[in-house]
């Protein structure tokens, strides 16, 4: 009997140890990736890196200003498309009666859109925009990114609104404020923290996306400010440079990876700040 308890305790400790070791092993690839990106990327980072466009094949140096600006433009544009759209679709879901068939279908659609592989979104954006316009454009890339952002914004809006006490809505309605005005002017501002978090998460999701941009924004070695023209983005540049045989371009790609990861980190940090600072005290 005594032995049995001893054995069981040993087994329990052994299990804990195995679980701990297995879970800590996940840091090996993380550390390895970060080591690669930081040690190689840091070599690329200098003033030129942020102010120049990539140099010609074979020349060393150059920068990724075109990709930084392109990422900025395209993500910004996709926010402009996706946020008002997703926000009001989220409001619709919040507002719909429980047994609404339409709301059920809409929720299902949002789930499905969320699960579409990004490359498939890229293909469809190609068919919708690039084929009729007969040229690659930043606009088509932004649209593909917007489709990726949409489900997250819809869902976070709906869920946030559901957490706000109903009494707030009633207080506004009792003042004779119309229904939709109440939703937009009272409910949305009260849920701003949750909605912004959803928005930031969706930016984090699309800023590193390459697949939907390959056939839409396509990439460009020049600094472009016209959204109807092909444009580069950081993940696209990483892909193109990584797949090239040139050492100097590889260095650029590592540098771009470093700032992309840094950017994602900033977004995670931003989310934590939003949650803390913008939380509306109810």
């Amino acid at each position: 009997m005594k032995n049995d308890i001893f054995f069981r305790k040993l087994q329990s400790s052994f299990f804990f140890l195995v679980m701990l070791v297995l879970s800590l092993m996940v840091f090996l690839p993380l550390i390895c990736i970060l080591y690669y990106v930081i040690s190689r990327g840091i070599k690329a980072i200098n003033l030129d890196f942020f102010t120049q466009i990539p140099s010609h094949v074979g020349d060393s140096g150059g920068g990724v200003l075109n990709a930084i600006m392109g990422s900025f433009y395209m993500v910004f544009l996709s926010i402009i498309i996706a946020v008002p759209w997703g926000l009001s679709a989220g409001i619709f879901l919040y507002d719909a009666p429980d047994d609404s068939r339409f709301a059920y279908l809409l929720r299902l659609s949002v789930d499905i859109i969320q699960s579409i592989p990004s490359i498939v979104i890229g293909i469809v954006a190609y068919v919708w925009f690039v084929m009729p316009m007969q040229k690659f454009s930043a606009l088509s890339g932004s649209f593909a990114l917007a489709i990726m952002m949409l489900p997250m914004i819809v869902r976070s809006t709906e869920e946030t609104l559901r957490l706000i006490p109903k009494t707030l809505k009633e207080a506004s309605l009792a003042l004779g404020v119309p229904h939709y005005t109440t939703l937009f002017k009272i409910m949305i501002p009260s849920g701003v923290s949750g909605i912004l978090t959803g928005g930031a998460l969706s930016i984090g999701r699309v800023v590193g996306e390459t697949a939907p941009l390959i056939f839409t924004a396509f990439g460009s070695p020049y600094l472009v400010h016209n959204i109807l023209k092909p444009m580069d983005a950081l993940p696209l540049l990483i892909y193109n440079c990584a797949m090239s045989p040139y050492e100097s371009w590889h260095t650029l790609a590592w540098g771009a990876s470093l700032i992309l990861i840094f950017f994602t980190l900033c977004i995670n940090l931003l989310i934590k700040i939003i949650v803390k600072k913008w939380e509306v005290v109810l």
Binding site: E170, A171, I186, P189, L282
Partner: peptide
């Protein structure tokens, strides 16, 4: 029943 000033 419960006071509900607009929090924003």
């Amino acid at each position: 029943q419960r006071a509900n000033p607009f929090p924003t």
